[in-house]
C-alpha cells in the first residue's frame, strides 16, 4: 500500500455523468492515465470514497478520491509481476 497524496487532473463528461482521472503527478513524475478499468464507491459513515482503478498502459494505479475533502490518494501501484 502506498497511500500518498497525489496531484490529479480529471475530466467530467456531462453527457455520460462520468469522471475520469486523466493525469497524475506522483513523486515528481507525470503519468498519463489512458483507461479507467473500474470505478466503485465505498461508504465510510456519511462520507463516500471513490475508488478509481486506472492504467497508464504500463502500470495499474488505484486512486482514492475523498468526496468530503476532495483529496486524491494513490493507494496502490501494480505492474502485474509476481510478488
Amino acid at each position: 500500500m502506498i497511500n500518498e497524496k497525489v496531484s490529479v487532473i480529471s475530466s467530467y463528461d456531462r453527457m455520460k455523468g462520468f469522471v475520469m482521472p486523466k493525469k497524475m503527478r506522483w513523486q515528481g513524475k507525470d503519468y498519463i492515465l489512458i483507461k479507467l478499468t473500474y470505478h466503485h464507491k465505498i461508504r465510510e459513515g456519511r462520507n463516500i470514497q471513490h475508488i478509481f482503478h486506472v492504467t497508464d498502459g504500463s502500470m495499474d494505479f488505484r486512486l482514492r478520491l475523498d468526496s468530503e475533502t476532495l483529496h486524491w490518494t494513490l493507494e496502490e501501484v501494480t505492474d502485474g509481476t509476481a510478488n
Binding site: K35, T37, Y38, H53, T55, S58, M59, D60, R62, T78, D79, G80
Partner: peptide, 9 residues
C-alpha cells in the same frame, strides 16, 4: 478487471 496488468496471468 480492475488491474489490467494482471489479465491473462
Amino acid at each position: 478487471q480492475a488491474n489490467s496488468h494482471l489479465r491473462g496471468k
